[in-house]
Design a protein around this nucleic acid. Sequence first.
DNA 1: CCAATTTGTTAGTAGAGCATACAATTTGGC
DNA 2: GCCAAATTGTATGCTCTACTAACAAATTGG
Lengths: 151, 151
Amino acid sequence: MGKPALTESKENAEIGALDGILGFHIRLAHGAVYRHFVETFSDLGLTQKQVSVLWLVGDQQGISQIELGSRLHMDRATTMTIVNRLQDREYLRRERSEEDGRKQALFLTTSGHAALEEAKQCIASHESWLKNRFTRQEIEKLVEMLTRIHE
Amino acid sequence: MGKPALTESKENAEIGALDGILGFHIRLAHGAVYRHFVETFSDLGLTQKQVSVLWLVGDQQGISQIELGSRLHMDRATTMTIVNRLQDREYLRRERSEEDGRKQALFLTTSGHAALEEAKQCIASHESWLKNRFTRQEIEKLVEMLTRIHE
DNA sequence: CCAATTTGTTAGTAGAGCATACAATTTGGC
DNA sequence: GCCAAATTGTATGCTCTACTAACAAATTGG
């Protein structure tokens, strides 16, 4: 019954049965990646979401908010707040779409492009910190498995 | 252009070069797991963190807040807000530790135990939703790789 | 042409995370 | 034993992300 009192030297935090929960490991891994991301981007002052949005808008100028949101799995309201923040910082601007008056077309400003370039440098260093612990094959397998989760 | 237009979830959202970023996939996977978690736990009204805390306190009655926080990678302030919320709902209680007057020892209440039991049922169904897409070996490998990230 | 849908917007709520400051307690150096 | 430093808990305030609900404007379809 019960478990022996933990007297072992293991510095690694014991999490008991939680260790068998896949979702738990995904959450912890995400947290670790998140924290390193924030550290890497403390100078730029950009969050993961903001960088993703800059990246996607840079990739596909004129994309609508709804399209942007759907590709990053954000709802309309969440997309709004992030686009608002980037617009306030003058990294991107909205334009009414000509084809569809309901849509806003999003474009990077000049400083938006500059910020994205800087961000891509940070992403590179962040990614190598992350990927360092895996072989090329493992990364491929990991990405494939993660994709099966988020589809 | 093999993809049919459909109203289902699986509209292959193009994310371009972002597709090569491992951190991005971790974030998307986490988001997908999180959303399914919330859905699964909408009846119980518990969050991932709250369940993790209930689980750990149930596993190790008398654990201190600092210990709890360190095992779930939360700082003291964050741990406080979560413990406060669970205490307000009378799922757990604090007791001044006898060995170390600085510490609070945490214990599940009766309804805390009940909530944890319910939660474990939900976790099981949530986990099988998640694990369904993998073989046993893949799960093992995935957990091992995720552990390398969060150590 | 009118009703339904899509898209954007605003406002409000909530969880999680972090920084800072402070109080109580314990620990360690002397 | 005593005092300074470290540990733990607490309180406050801020930010980011995410969701809901309601509403307006534009488009689409029957």
